[in-house]
Design a protein around this nucleic acid. Structure first.
Lengths: 232, 232
DNA sequence: TTTACAATTTTGTTGCAACAAAAATATCCG
DNA sequence: CGGATATTTTTGTTGCAACAAAATTGTAAA
């Protein structure tokens, strides 16, 4: 078995197995929109992409499929999921419950420094929108949300929310710039930060729930106007 | 042509692979308490138990670990999770959010035949308790809960709830018969069924939330009184 | 041209051996 | 005997070849 150059990037991850690294890399690519909805993934193609053998590639694909970040489209075909209205609605319902809970609990542990960090993240979102870098804006938006959710100090909950974002993430990239142009969530984010400063859990929850609902409406509208066609 | 996520339930997947079968079998054993909390699982031991090679055994272990149904207790050791107070509290919080949502939505789709089926399940719970078959009572209790949750017709949600039950399941078996003796949930279940007959979502949710909270209290108390020591 | 069917290629799965890291055991020296 | 060190065993990981099933391509007859 060969030693790979990827060790240059992360020295301290020597303990991580190739399968775990492949999983992380694939997850990142899915979230960042490298693989578009409908894209078919094969063990050997992924292995070649990541420069590993079939075993770690298969490990990564299976793990992502078991989290529903990838879905089975046939007996021997795994694809990046294509969101339809029904799935979008269900995932939004679950997101409201879980992210609402995380947002509310965040108020229990927040300290002023956390809000400062959030303000910096919000600035990054705004800058990315100004520059038209919509993929970056989406990324920073994700960072903003999870910075809040992590404050709740409920690791299981954060992990579960991540799997939900993984399921809708790919479809977001088919929708910008139309989606991002409307300055998603700026107001809701401001309200959430103010509520965090007041340690007002109910208001934090309300703000984040509004953000999720606003995103849902835009996404639903965009899905109607512009059919999301799978690639390949 | 891409496949939409909600269609996945309708697509019957081809013959089950050995890895999937191993996963199912291991999951069943964990839920039924064959492997107790703290039990260490090795690839080769599982392979021998299930009479398959190491590859499907490793697939099953990795998948269960990625769902947190098994946890890493060291660099090279996967064990059945031992519940501590903090984890129990967090999972209960998430259960309240998710199972509450499922219970409420169940009222939107319930038909009288569903309630009849629930009454039969409740009878099975009572019979098992009468006979002192506590493991059976736990099993039927699980069936009762999920029969309600499935009514919500939200497959993603049901899957997520299942992973939560998988995390606390093993520890339940360390607690009965003390745990089961108190006739868990009989009253709450009755209330839930009446609310379902009235299609009163808020009341179904309240009943199931009460059931979860009652279980949580008993579990917490039992954990305090009787330390759950890992086996081996 | 179209359709049915055979040949070929692609692809996921499975078992297994080699390897390295960790754990367990044995050994030796004070 | 005690503790440190060397040795052996256990164990997860990785790469790979063989296999069967599915998808694709090629081919020929109508």
């Amino acid at each position: 078995m060969g030693v790979h150059v990827s060790e240059l990037a992360n020295i301290d991850r020597a303990a991580e197995s190739l399968g775990d690294a492949a999983y992380r890399e694939m997850k990142e690519r899915i979230i960042r929109g490298v693989y578009r909805p409908g894209h078919k993934l094969t063990v050997r193609a992924v292995a070649q992409d990541l420069d590993v053998s079939t075993t770690p590639a298969r490990d990564a694909i299976n793990r992502l499929a078991s989290e529903a970040a990838l879905v089975y489209a046939g007996p021997k075909t795994v694809v990046v999921p294509v969101l339809d209205a029904k799935a979008l609605q269900e995932i939004t319902l679950i997101r409201l419950a879980l992210e609402g809970l995380a947002a509310q609990q965040a108020a229990e542990h927040v300290v002023p420094e956390d809000v400062e960090a959030l303000k910096i993240l919000q600035k990054k979102i705004n800058s990315a929108l100004d520059a038209g870098l919509y993929a970056d804006a989406l990324w920073h938006n994700k960072e903003f949300h999870f910075a809040i959710y992590r404050l709740a100090q409920l690791p299981h909950l954060v992990t579960m929310i991540e799997t939900l974002w993984l399921r809708i993430g790919p479809s977001l990239h088919n929708l910008y710039p139309e989606f991002a142009k409307e300055r998603f969530g700026v107001h809701n984010h401001e309200v959430a930060m103010e509520a965090l400063e007041d340690r007002d859990g109910a208001s934090v929850r309300a703000a984040m729930e509004n953000d999720i609902r606003d995103g849902y409406r835009r996404l639903k509208r965009a899905c109607r106007e512009k059919a999301i066609l799978p690639v390949q």
